[in-house]
């Protein structure tokens, strides 16, 4: 009995020692990494302490000075909400444009991704060569950030939402294509065998064997991507690719201080609304499959 206990405590203290050693090693490593990184980006206290008051100033400037007595007065009176949002109609049109950019790019990206995903799923791909090339292609599409593509397309297609939509479509295709092919790889292939035995080719196999079982997951991923694209489309205008981001970039650079907060508040509200709606939809879709 004593022997077992002794062995046990010896074992325990050895393990603790080993873990301590590793912990110290990791903490030291982190410390060194922090020192190196700080020196690379020239991080020091004076820069931060001198920046914080300027940040405070800027935030104070962009916040509207609302007067509680005049809150709902007309747009001529300073301190009222209509004065703050005197450009409201323009913002709404731009927000709608932003929303449509996200819708179109998600939709087109969804279609392309769905077509390509059948080739890049290991278990159902028609041949190994197409599997390899489509997979690499999708990796490239999602590896390059959409805003870089946007800069490129602004050069080629001119300033405007078209460049943004194409850029986001490309990125969406890459990202969704990977997720979709992972969904396909988890699909049950028995129904495909049944279709093959009844004389169906590869296309009917995909259409009637794979698609019905993966559809709920795929749609839920597409909705998730839509949320991401809404965020992306609010900023892709920074490089001139349309949407409300273009206006935001303009008012920030021209120092129209109060308009900055007006636009950012609208963006936050839009993003949160869409997140909540699409989250609820996704829950319903996923739940529907388990009933």
């Amino acid at each position: 009995m004593n022997n077992i206990l002794e062995n046990y405590s010896k074992n325990y203290s050895e393990q603790i020692k080993k873990r301590r050693f590793w912990n110290i090693f990791i903490v030291l490593g982190l410390f060194v990494a922090i020192l190196i990184s700080s020196s690379i980006i020239d991080l020091n206290m004076t820069r931060i302490t001198s920046g914080i008051p300027r940040l405070g100033d800027y935030i104070a400037k962009i916040l509207p000075n609302l007067d509680t007595n005049l809150l709902f007065a007309n747009s001529q009176i300073e301190g009222s909400v209509p004065y703050w949002y005197f450009n409201f109609k323009k913002y709404i049109v731009l927000l709608y444009e932003t929303f449509n950019m996200a819708v179109l790019s998600t939709l087109f990206g969804f279609v392309f991704a769905l077509l390509l995903s059948f080739f890049s799923a290991r278990n159902i791909t028609p041949n190994v060569l197409s599997f390899f090339f489509v997979k690499r292609f999708l990796e490239f599409l999602r590896g390059v950030p959409e805003i870089i593509f946007a800069i490129l397309f602004v050069w080629a297609l001119g300033v405007g939402p078209l460049a943004g939509i194409i850029a986001m479509t490309i990125h969406t295709t890459g990202a969704l294509g990977k997720l979709f092919s992972e969904v396909h790889e988890n699909a049950e292939l028995k129904s495909c065998e049944a279709i093959r035995s009844a004389g169906g080719g590869w296309v009917p196999e995909m259409r009637y064997g794979v698609l019905p079982q993966v559809l709920p997951n795929i749609i839920s991923y597409a909705l998730l991507r839509f949320e991401i694209n809404i965020r992306a489309s609010t900023v892709i205008g920074f490089v001139g690719a349309g949407g409300i981001g273009q206006e935001l970039y303009l008012v920030i650079n021209f120092n129209y201080y109060e308009e900055v907060s007006a636009i950012i508040l609208l963006i936050i509200l839009t993003v949160i609304t869409i997140d909540i709606t699409s989250g609820a939809l996704r829950q319903r879709i996923i739940k529907g499959t388990h009933d």
Binding site: G51, Y58, V235
Partner: peptide
């Protein structure tokens, strides 16, 4: 979370250079 990282970046560029 509602504000994209690029918007934060542009605000911080204003304050910290």
């Amino acid at each position: 979370r509602g504000v994209d990282i690029l918007i934060w970046a542009i605000i911080y560029v204003r304050a910290f250079g």
